[in-house]
Design a protein around this nucleic acid. Structure first.
Length: 945
RNA sequence: GCGGGGGUUGCCGAGCUAGGUCAAAGGCGACAGACUCAAGAUCUGUUCCCGUAGGGGUUCGCCGGUUCGAAUCCGGCCCCCCGCACCA
């Protein structure tokens, strides 16, 4: 078979006959989506896996009788396409050569390639060029996509849809504007992402929220930052670095004293921050500040461990619970000379005693206890970090605030921490100060700090009602593999406020603030709804302006009426009604197939946005996922140079072969390793399988009354596999189904041929070929279509429906008999091998009838009652013999199944002789080694000479 | 750190949600035989260890437990992978 020719022919005919363009009908429907690809380049085999699996599912659903919609569109919003166009415009050689390579996949003429890449200076051309190519690529992969419904995410009609989405979200009160902390580089004046940070990929930088507590000092506050605001009740003093530089800072109408570094950072976190004047840290030493809760006076003391470049550069001391504080205090008390140098009296430190505010089992005074246990003797000891971690963890989970903590007394830290924080803020005793989790610089060596965006639009996923709905949907949906359901629950819990607008990139303008562009993950959440009407918008040539809020309200939510909407928008009433019914018919999206990488963003938003906007009956039906594809053990990436473009599949491998490989190489949820060697061995086996099928096309099947025992065996095997495979496909065990139907069944065929010969194999295969082709057609549609037509059908197998499995042909007995013979043959082989015999004659002895009687009697017995049951079977044989026999049977763990051993052996005598190369004699009275008595039911005794 | 997943015989990889029929599917690799002048391809067999009669022994990350019986259930430990937001 000329696979390439076959692929092209059927792709052409599918297109001509519009077989994958489903219409609204009475039939049950199935709406499957695979996320649209991002159009910044061409797609490769790795992407191909996901789309291929999606297509296999779509095609299988058609076989099950569903009216299947599988649409596709193109994602172009966001910054990457823009960035690429910029780079090409700026003559960035790396990018230009990368894009030359991409274009070279499709074009031969170097001049033309140059022209095309030149045109990429305009980002729209990039999107357009690759969209067109992807359509070709997907067609060449045989994907059963309805292309009438395609669109790209930068089109005006789609922008209108995204605007509508945001208006609906706003109705629900989840679109908010406010402050938002991000990592930021003051020198670059830009936000920095993980990619921009030195070692950001390996050593993550997260944003920590410190509570800044205001201690009254002179005309303002000395502001100390802490991650443990609940310890404020145990504060004994403040620590300041005497060598640091501290500033008087005007923050709104307050005066704060913090380190210079902190002041610089604060400018990016609060409005109206002005540094007024700076002084050395030691100026503060020995002064007293007022602790805000009880108004106690506490001293400011010097400490070397205080880092002016961490948070506010001022920390408060809780020596009872913080190892650093405890140790610093101990050091200070020991070091009188140092005190004098700084002009401090002994008394100021001697008066300080740790205030214990947390009760916890196993500690008397936690900070002291841990320092003593670890043998820490100095505040510069690096193990203090570890000690802090230990105390923090223990206190957090099992510590309880004691009577010194006012209204928080008696509550566990883990339960009260956030409340203390809010309380401090509400009482204006505290504020928030953000700091990075570690000192970080950008790749150009610029300092990374936390900035707070003051006017950021975001979607507030933290709302409880919303999360509740998300969980509810997650509980009802289908997840495959099932383990992702748990993960989704976790992700929904973790979701928080998320910025949804940016200043740059392609996309939809923010409806209430045209300077902003809706961020491109937020515009790709409920777009499956848009597929249901996209082709009608185009068909009727409806301009984007007419796609108003009330239009979408009616079509997607059934609000208002068509008459009115038609009048207001000028869109034909019929068209509007048609769109409404199209949406009603196809929605919800029954299955979304994609890769697990999208769980925490796309898929979570997919669920959340649906539950916020749509009524329950239109919530997502399910999510299925397949793992990554790697190649020869390595990640597939342009920089590794191991990319195989999707466009090369057809010529280099063959599309059906690729599809089959995707189906069988790995289970859906595991990583698939593309190995050239496996692929070539798969090709050989597949080609052989196909030509074996071709041989049967013109053969005549075998009538049922003409069938022999081997024919029935093969049909039994086939329909058992066919029945099982349908179930496997239903539960998306595509790999198991195909291994079963193609490879395991091939072994059956080979076995059959050994018994019945090649000619008869061709004929018996004609009996099953149509059902076989159907079940494998989702995976290898071109070959299946070709053979289907060779068999004389005019219909498309792609639109056929599965026949019910022939349960009447599944015959346990006949299969057991063959197993029996084969296990006997392998026993004989083993004996020959172990005993090193040149076999001439093989004597086979079947078990005596009384053994069968007992076998029958104990078939349902437990091991404990088997002997008793055997005794009661009424067999007149020596009791000792019976016990010995039953014990052996128990050991063999033989499953009960009754066959007439002797007649099976007689029938298969020739076969056994052929396989063993010796003469076979059954139940002879010649028994020189007294083997017969060793025979068990289903396990004959053997003597070889 | 938080959340999710996993460690299986030379390698890859099923089985482990419903414990026994599991020395454990399948593929790759290796070995032997058939075919061939030869190579390749194909087919057949073998591929944890021992064994001159179909048997025995030791395995499924480590330690322990439940059970007549565990790769499969429970507890602890070690190791590995993935995601963690303003980025598609």
């Amino acid at each position: 078979m000329d696979f390439r020719e076959v692929e092209r022919r059927w792709q052409r005919r599918w297109k001509e006959a519009r077989v994958f363009e489903p219409e609204v009908s009475e039939r049950k429907k199935f709406f499957i989506t695979v996320p649209y690809p991002y159009m910044s380049g061409s797609l490769h085999i790795g992407h191909g896996r996901t789309f291929t699996i999606g297509d296999i599912i779509a095609r299988f659903k058609r076989l099950e009788g569903y009216n299947v919609l599988f649409p596709m569109a193109f994602h172009v919003t966001g910054t990457p396409v823009l960035a690429i166009a910029d780079a090409i415009r700026n003559g960035d050689e790396r990018v230009i050569s990368l894009y030359r390579d991409y274009v070279r996949i499709y074009e031969d003429d170097e001049k033309k390639i140059e022209e095309i890449v030149e045109s990429f200076k305009n980002p729209e051309n990039i999107a357009r060029y690759f969209s067109e190519k992807v359509i070709e690529d997907f067609r060449s992969m045989g994907y059963s996509i309805d292309w009438r419904r395609r669109f790209n995410t930068a089109e005006p009609i789609y922008n209108r849809f995204v605007e509508w989405q945001f208006k609906k979200l706003n109705e629900r009160g989840v679109i908010k504007k406010g402050k938002y902390p991000i990592t930021f580089s003051p020198e670059d004046g830009n936000p920095v992402g993980e990619d921009d940070i030195e070692d950001g990929d390996t050593n993550k930088v997260t944003i920590m929220e410190f509570t800044a507590i205001k201690f009254r000092y002179e005309d303002g506050y000395l502001v100390a930052a802490t991650l443990r605001p609940e310890t404020i009740f145990g504060v004994t003093n403040l620590w300041i670095n005497p060598h640091g530089e501290y500033c008087r800072v005007r923050v709104g109408d307050e005066i704060w004293y913090i380190s210079r570094e902190a002041a610089e950072k604060l400018k990016y976190q609060k409005e109206n921050v002005v540094i007024e004047d700076c002084m050395p840290g030691k100026n503060f030493v020995g002064k007293y500040v007022k602790e805000p809760v009880d108004g106690r006076d506490v001293p400011v003391l010097p400490a070397e461990f205080v880092d002016v470049d961490n948070a506010t550069g001022v920390v408060y001391s809780v020596p009872a619970h913080a190892p650093y504080d405890y140790q610093a205090l101990v050091d200070l008390k020991k070091n009188r000379e140092y005190l004098r140098e700084l002009g401090l009296s002994d008394e100021i430190v001697d008066r300080i005693e740790p205030i214990k505010i947390i009760d916890i089992k196993g500690y008397e005074l936690p900070a002291r206890d841990i320092c003593e246990r670890m043998g820490i003797e100095d505040q510069r000891d690096p193990r203090l970090e570890e000690a802090t971690q230990i105390i923090y963890k223990d206190e957090f989970y099992s510590g309880v605030l004691n009577e010194k903590c006012g209204k928080f007394a008696g509550i566990k830290i883990s339960e009260i921490k956030d409340e203390v924080k809010t309380w401090l803020k509400d009482m204006n005793m505290g504020d928030v100060f953000y700091e990075t989790s570690r000192k970080a610089v950008t790749r150009n060596g610029h300092k990374v700090i936390v900035a707070v965006l003051q006017e950021q639009w975001f979607i507030d996923y933290s709302l409880q009602w919303w999360k509740d709905l998300g969980h509810k949907a997650t509980d009802r949906m289908l997840f495959h593999p099932e383990k992702y359901r748990e993960m989704m629950h976790g992700i929904i819990d973790w979701l928080n406020r998320r910025p949804c607008a940016r200043k740059r990139g392609l996309g939809t303008r923010f409806p209430w603030d045209r300077e902003w562009i809706i961020e491109s993950l937020s515009d790709s959440t409920i777009y499956m709804a848009f597929y249901t009407i996209a082709h009608l918008i185009r068909e009727s040539n409806i301009p984007a302006e007419k796609l108003t809020e009330e239009f979408f309200d009616y079509v997607f939510l059934g609000r208002g009426n068509a008459e009115e909407v038609s009048k207001r928008t000028g869109i034909e009433k019929d068209t509007i009604e048609r769109m409404r019914s199209e949406f009603i018919y196809w929605y919800p999206n029954d299955l979304r197939h994609t890769a697990p990488a999208h769980m925490s963003n796309h898929l979570a938003f997919f669920i959340m946005h649906h539950v916020a906007i749509f009524p329950e009956e239109h919530w997502p039906g399910g999510i299925s996922l397949n793992g990554l594809m790697i190649r020869e053990g390595a990640k597939i990436s342009k920089s590794k140079g191991n990319v195989i473009p999707l466009a090369h599949i057809s010529t280099r491998y063959g599309v059906d072969l690729f599809r089959l490989y995707c189906a069988v190489a790995a289970d859906l949820d595991t990583v698939m390793d593309w190995k050239e060697s496996e692929l070539s061995s798969l090709r050989k086996r597949f080609e052989k399988f196909v030509s074996m099928l071709e041989e049967s096309v013109n053969s005549e099947g075998i009538e049922e009354d003409q069938m022999n025992h081997y024919d029935r065996w093969l049909l039994s095997r086939f329909y058992r596999r066919y029945r099982d495979s349908i179930e496997m496909m239903r539960s998306l065990k595509i790999r198991d189904a195909m291994l079963n139907m193609i490879f395991h069944f091939s072994n059956d065929i080979r076995y059959y041929e050994k018994h019945a010969g090649e000619e008869r194999r061709r004929r018996i295969m004609r009996n099953v070929i149509e059902d076989l082709l159907k079940i494998i057609s989702p995976v290898v549609p071109h070959v299946a279509e070709e053979l289907w037509h060779m068999l004389g059908h005019d219909s498309f197998i792609s639109l056929e429906t599965l026949s019910a499995p022939r349960h009447d042909l599944i015959d346990d007995r006949i299969e057991r008999e063959m197993e029996y013979v084969d296990s006997l043959i392998s026993d004989i082989r083993e004996i020959i091998d172990v005993a090193k015999i040149e076999p001439k004659k093989i004597y086979i002895y079947t078990a005596e009838p009384w053994k069968w009687e007992i076998f029958r009697a104990i078939k349902d017995s437990s091991p404990k009652t088997a002997i008793r049951d055997a005794m009661n079977a009424g067999v007149s044989v020596d009791k000792g013999e019976i016990v010995k026999f039953v014990k052996r049977m128990l050991k063999e763990k033989m499953g009960y199944f009754e066959i007439d051993e002797r007649s099976v052996l007689e029938r298969e005598k020739d076969y056994i002789e052929r396989e063993t190369g010796a003469e076979v004699i059954i139940d002879s009275s010649y028994d020189p080694k007294a083997k017969k008595k060793l025979a068990l039911p289903l396990k004959p005794a053997v003597y070889i000479e």
